[in-house]
Design a protein around this nucleic acid. Structure first.
Length: 493
DNA sequence: GTTAGGG
DNA sequence: CCCTAAC
């Protein structure tokens, strides 16, 4: 293909190094428009261009579909409201890799860890040299107005609010904020920087949301938002999906149950690529924990619809404090103690509640260290922080590794039991605890991998231990090896 | 970092 | 749509 293309005659080296007909060498530079126009291949510079042959076809369909869907106007809508929006606010946060993209990475090549966070547009970007100096920069609209004597007065007062505080003395920030907080219907005269512009929900979006709930279940808002083939408006957030589902779809469904199956003529047309990714996703994603919402299947999610987040009662907090005095930072022991009546809470839940409820006590264990004696607060905190960081980064690595196929190497982590983001072990085991259960050293490599519970045990049932067909074929992805080489695995104290 | 629920 | 606690 390549050597038959128009570039062939332009390339002086082609004669010296003739290409094998089946070999494709990605060009180093942007292909010429001529080439791009005539070639059926996606540009090699595109994100997913370097796929294996089979997957290439699937993904090519996928992007084509996504493109078509993105360009299609919703039924009954004159134009996408995103097109009408004069100023697009950028995505609030740079999204991590999509689920299907991360899994795609496993099947394709390990992608370098792109620093996605830095994609957020910087507040002050260098002005292009092509810009005339007397012109404002292209992003001038994003800059706050220069008002030297008014330090960051973001809310310009509407007429109504001005008249209210007309004769009043200068208000402090708090009362100002509460005063100007929610005043609707005063037109566009007031620029509410705090509130993002309303994005009307299109019928397409609503239908996609419903469809996404069918696929992923309630609560998987981000997955729905990022589902390939869906095109929500730019700037839509998972919270938006959640709110819209709650305020529109769910309430409407309670009155008149929707036939979600094939209620619409709109065919979202999940192609083979989608079903492929979905099957992979469903096979690989760990089921939500019991305390969250049952299972990821829509039916059971519906059944458990009125699940509430477990707000902690005062009695629970009292027992939590008692448990802390009794066991220290052994959260699972606190949860298990029948006298404390916290059996419905998991270790991570207990820990997180303790952190928010008793922030001063968290990370401040005043008892002497079993080996080191009494430590200074700072030293202990820094050690705890180090452990947290290590645990966090390892967890991120292992999670990615699991998606990359590292499951079964012993590096994946069953996240269904651990809702928290940190290791359960935040301090060394304290001497108090049950004498017949020896504690593992808190700083073993195994522990850093996050495989131990707060008792220092790997208490996964044997059925839960990873043993897939996938696993035996896969070795650690290169990124993981690299990290293991550069990151100290063992805390040698 | 994501989600649920109240506002 | 925002805020915040829970996860």
């Amino acid at each position: 293909m390549l050597n038959a293309g128009p570039m062939a005659m332009l390339d002086p080296f082609l004669d010296d190094f003739p290409l094998h007909p089946t070999v494709r060498i990605p060009p180093l530079l942007d292909p010429s428009p001529d080439f791009a126009a005539k070639s059926a291949l996606p540009s090699p510079l595109e994100p997913n261009a370097c796929l294996n042959a089979d997957l290439d076809i699937e993904t090519a369909k996928l992007t084509g579909r996504r493109k078509a869907l993105a360009e299609a106007k919703p039924i009954g809508e004159p134009a996408k409201s995103s097109e009408l929006r004069p100023i697009q606010r950028g995505p609030r946060k740079r999204q991590k890799l999509q689920d299907y993209e991360r899994i795609a990475d496993f099947v394709q090549l390990p992608e370098p860890r792109t620093t996605t966070k830095n994609e957020k547009p910087r507040p002050f970007q260098p002005v292009s040299v092509l810009n005339e100096l007397h012109e404002p920069p292209p992003s001038a609209a994003l800059f706050p107005p220069i008002t030297p004597n008014e330090p960051t007065q973001k809310h310009s007062h509407s007429l109504s609010s001005l008249s209210l505080i007309d004769s009043a003395p200068v208000e402090n920030d708090a009362s100002l904020a509460s005063n100007s907080s929610r005043q609707k219907g005063d037109g566009q005269s007031q620029k509410r920087t705090s509130q993002r512009p309303r994005m009307k929900w299109t019928t397409l979006e609503t239908e996609q949301l419903q469809k996404g709930v069918e696929i992923y279940g309630i609560g998987k808002w981000k997955k729905i938002l990022n589902h390939p083939g869906f095109s929500f408006q730019h700037g839509r957030t998972p919270v938006d999906l959640k709110d819209h589902h709650r305020t529109r779809i769910k309430s409407q469904a309670s009155r008149k149950p929707l036939d979600l199956g094939r209620s619409r003529a709109v065919d979202f047309g999940f192609n083979t690529a989608d079903s492929f990714w979905n099957s992979v996703i469903n096979a690989k994603s760990s089921p939500p924990s019991e305390s969250q919402m049952g299972t990821s299947h829509p039916e059971s999610v519906m059944a458990a619809g009125n699940n509430r987040k477990g707000t902690w009662t005062d009695i629970e907090d009292e027992n939590l404090e008692k448990g802390y005095k009794k066991y220290g930072f052994s959260w699972t022991r606190i949860a298990k103690d029948p006298e404390l009546d916290l059996a419905h809470r998991t270790g991570p839940q207990v820990r997180d509640r303790f952190r928010t409820k008793f922030p001063a006590l968290y990370g401040e264990d005043t008892r002497p260290h079993p080996r080191h004696g009494r430590e200074s607060r700072e030293k202990k905190d820094s050690r705890a922080q180090q452990r947290r960081n290590a645990s966090r980064s390892m967890e991120a690595t292992t999670r990615e590794g699991a998606l990359n196929g590292a499951k079964g190497t012993g590096l994946d982590r069953d996240s269904s039991r651990d809702n928290g983001s940190e290791s359960d072990i935040t301090v060394e085991p304290i001497a108090v605890i049950s004498p017949n259960r020896p504690s593992a050293p808190a700083s073993s490599a195994y522990n850093l991998l996050g495989l131990l519970n707060s008792d220092g045990e790997d208490d996964r049932p044997s059925a839960e231990l990873p043993l897939d067909t996938w696993d035996t074929q896969v070795t650690l992805p290169p990124l993981l090896w690299e990290e293991m080489a550069t990151r100290p695995m063992f805390d040698l104290e």
